[in-house]
Design a protein around this nucleic acid. Structure first.
Lengths: 150, 150
DNA sequence: TTGATATAGTTCAACATCGAACTATTAAAT
DNA sequence: ATTTAATAGTTCGATGTTGAACTATATCAA
């Protein structure tokens, strides 16, 4: 495994870390995908529902920041959630540019049932690392993410 | 930041690590996206070209494993590369089920120009972490990825 | 030889994703 | 008040992505 790049040591090291990072994220996400698929949810839909579940009503632009997707994407994902009766959009009268997105009762019920299963699966999967390793992974990822985003 | 889940400590720790992992991978990938976009390449196309560049000719199923995507997906991505004159497909006469995918001269030239820039950008981005931290990140991600894939 | 099985690749419907162009609405500037 | 700028959201075309059904080819077993 690892990069076959023949360049400066510093680049080989960085590429190896980057490849491992991408693959680990992919692997864990493909596991969590199973729980969502059982409920007929996509990853994106679950991400939006989870944000609404834990943070309460948000507008589309706020949701886009939370789930790291474009505004245009959110328009579609939210529309599909609304079609399936899991979320609802209402235009704010104070500022008619905004449309507040919130869970329906059906959406809330679904998340109350599904999120705990998701959390258990994530815990089980991350359990491949010791608690201290999980914390260290988090620290490194946050440090990296902060720099890469800036 | 971090999970708002009110569950067992073990689940909170795992969710926090998982969220950080996903976001870090997203952040770094969105940076590398810039270099590819300049050349009119998507991430998927670059991934396939890079595999062919470093490993030589491969069939679609092998490529699918390398880039962690489905066979159906590879059919499209390879078709688009072929359309753009960057790769070529040839049916193997020893076993006509297989179609060998390889770079064209144009594709090789493009990768010789583009990959070094990609490597420099990755090194610069990962430079937010000390060398030892990059190695530790790699170790943790590999340990996790191995377990999550199995 | 024939039939079962396995594998490589394609096709398809549904959904995701981006970026850019666009509309609607509000705020700021003059 | 009118123009200008900024922001929220939608639309659109191109591409990606999956999983399942499908075709073509090859292998193995009886």
């Amino acid at each position: 495994m690892g990069s076959r790049h023949r360049g400066p040591k510093e680049e080989v090291r960085a590429l190896n870390a980057f490849i491992a990072l991408s693959r680990a994220a992919d692997s864990v996400e493909s596991r969590t995908h199973a729980v969502m698929a059982e409920e007929g949810l996509t990853e994106s839909q679950f991400g939006v529902l989870e944000a609404l579940h834990h943070l309460g009503p948000l507008c589309a632009a706020e949701l886009a920041k939370k789930v790291l997707r474009s505004k245009g994407n959110l328009t579609l994902v939210i529309a599909n959630l609304e079609r399936d009766g899991l979320a609802r959009r209402t235009t704010r009268e104070e500022d008619r540019r905004y449309r507040t997105v919130e869970l329906t009762r059906k959406g809330r019920t679904l998340m109350e049932k599904t999120f705990p299963r998701h959390a258990r699966l994530v815990a089980k999967t991350m359990g491949a690392l010791e608690p201290g390793e999980q914390d260290e992974l988090r620290r490194l990822c946050r440090k990296l993410g902060k720099a890469a985003a800036g």
